[in-house]
Amino acid sequence: MRPEAQTPAFEARGLTKIYRMGEVEVPALRGVDLSLYDGEFVVLLGPSGSGKSTLLNILGGLDTPTAGRVRFRDHDLVAAGDRELTRYRREHVGFVFQFYNLVPSLTARENVELGAEISERPIGSEQALAMVGLAERMDHFPSQLSGGEQQRVAIARAVAKNPDVLLCDEPTGALDVTTGKVVLQVLHRVNAELGTTVVIITHNAAIAGMADRVLVMHDGRIARETRNAVKVPPEEIEW
């Protein structure tokens, strides 16, 4: 399937973001054009400060650009207010962060239910946990889980909503290689089995091998775009 034949799910044109820190203006994005297609696995690569997190936040409805247009299907993410952005996140987006952000007072299952509860077409939380390989540890609290396990619960929580897109900000950043690979396998599986669009931002170039498309960001712009003819299976990635 050639994604370019479809209408892009995300379409951004001339995205600019300037942070105002007192008197100083810090540009984070300087005119980004971008299209993302349904079912794609995309890795956004770049050093810290290149603007990749800002771009992810704008795509996820956590932030709005200073200038430019960005649209997800029929949602205009620039004109949307807080209420519409919340609804957009609720219906379409799943987030995975570097530091998991699980609710410590809830068990793995309950953390996942937290996501499933607000979705109109959720995946069962037990199914989501099984998918990330944690069916056995459903009733454990975060304090009883390892870092990798906590991150897999976080993915299950994002996936349980059955989102259209999974946005992952350095999902393996806090993990060692072995557990990091398990997390990448899970993300790969979500993309392959559920058809969820997955966007990972990372400064770890090794991860790029498993993507359909790799976007390299530099100084607030997309500097390079490559397409992997052959994708490396996550278990073969080393760093």
Binding site: G60, L62, D82, R83, T86, R87, R89, R90, E91, V93, G94, F95, N101, L102, V103, P104, S105, L114, G115, I118, R157, A158, K161
Partner: peptide, 16 residues
């Protein structure tokens, strides 16, 4: 703070 922010990111509304 962190939990509440997480919930907001997941898509919980401010009133929720």
């Amino acid at each position: 703070e962190r939990e509440l922010a997480t919930l907001r990111v997941i898509g919980y509304t401010r009133p929720e």
